[in-house]
Design a binder for these strands. Structure first.
Length: 258
DNA sequence: ATGGTAGAGTGTCTA
């Protein structure tokens, strides 16, 4: 089974690329972030024609997550227990959606950006991650994968210019400790061993031709529970998806399961 | 420190 994750930065403006990506890589389950669409705005026809089911959670202009699956899509849950706003159908949150696809529990996650270190959104980000970690410990014994845009660069080598980011979010010790906490609990970054750095990124800002100069960050990850991680036979980052006109600012991550 | 680009939707906000 082939899993993928992709911050598409608008599903509506990226639908042609998404459909082509699914076909080109023969993807079974694709987790999307930043769909920037309400559920009824998701362009379904082409995806359904390709044999996929779609579960989405979108409530505003900048969040939005979805799971696209052709191996079943069951037990869909918007948000996780303990998440701010969880259980409230009107909550202005659409940063997490879970579903069981082909026997694997997959969570598509759009971790809060945090904005600036002195911004309340930074505190919110750390709190959100702590609550996710608490919930995720209950899923460790299952075939679980936590995928998406973590908005954290865990290592210095994951940032094109650490000096430029030294006082910014995404690299602070508290954010990195939050990410490391998942690894300490037993989750495994199933991508990195197959895509070793340095200078291997998943995100390049639209500004200043950052992609063309490979000035990016590695902030998108697939973290597998121990049993899931043991099934991973390979992984890749499709950086070609960041190239050319009409690209998202993120590249997809892919993992293969035995 | 600032500004550069892209996408949501028409005013700016978000990243």
């Amino acid at each position: 089974m082939r899993l993928a994750t992709w911050n598409v930065n608008s599903i509506r403006s990226r639908i042609d690329r998404v459909e082509a990506f699914l076909e080109r890589h023969d993807v079974d389950v694709l987790a999307l972030q930043e769909t920037k669409a309400k559920d009824e705005q998701i362009p379904l026809m082409g995806l359904q024609a390709l044999g996929y089911e779609v579960a989405a959670a979108g409530t505003n202009q900048w969040n939005g997550v979805a799971i696209i699956s052709r191996v079943g899509l069951g037990d869909v849950q918007v948000g996780f227990p303990g998440m701010p706003g969880w259980g409230d159908p009107l909550a202005p949150e659409s940063r997490a959606i879970g579903a069981t696809c082909g026997g694997v529990r997959i969570w598509s996650l759009y971790v809060p950006n945090g904005r600036k270190v002195d911004d309340p959104h930074y505190v919110y980000k750390l709190d959100w991650l702590a609550r996710l970690r608490s919930a995720a410990t209950d899923w460790l014994a299952d075939d679980t994968v936590l995928v998406g845009d973590w908005n954290i660069a865990p290592r210095d080598e994951d940032v094109y210019d650490m000096a430029a980011f030294a006082t910014d979010t995404h690299v602070t010790p508290r954010e990195r400790a939050a990410f490391q906490g998942f690894l300490d609990d037993g989750y495994v970054d199933v991508t990195r061993e197959f895509t070793p750095g340095p200078k291997v990124y998943t995100y390049w800002d639209y500004y200043r031709q950052r992609f063309e100069r490979n000035r990016g960050m590695r902030i998108d990850f697939l973290l597998g529970s121990p049993s899931l991680a043991s099934r991973v036979t390979g992984a890749s980052i499709d950086r070609n998806e960041r190239a050319g006109q009409g690209a998202s600012d993120h590249a997809p991550g892919i993992a293969d399961l035995a």
